[in-house]
Amino acid sequence: MHEWALAEAVALALSSYAKRAGIGRVKRLVLGLGELQAVDREVFELALGESLKLYGLEVESYELVTEEAFFECKACGFSWGLGELALSDEVREAIHFLPEAAYAYVRCPRCGSPDFSIVRGRGVRILGLEA
């Protein structure tokens, strides 16, 4: 599953940070899951657990926060969310793999411009870390 790649990336980044910072474990971890990437939480959590084990890092507790996707048009300033778009399952699947693929399917609902920002809710990111 693609979730494995995302979870593994987080585990790798954390373990290499931990190595550099000389810490053996992380007390608390907060991860943001972007709505655009539509991560399957169950699979992600399973993969994260396994990956952390694989890279030898102990995380005492973690929290997964869903971040709603939010777009803003550079041409007219309009902003909108994912819920306002009618995307087929196939397109959602493509965007799940590669959130930037949104630029192939999404246009500003007000002016039709392809030049918009993904302001929030793109993918997986580390929001907080307590060693």
Partner: peptide
Amino acid sequence: MRYLADPRLEA
């Protein structure tokens, strides 16, 4: 730290 900012880089 850049790897924490974007965990994909390590991957």
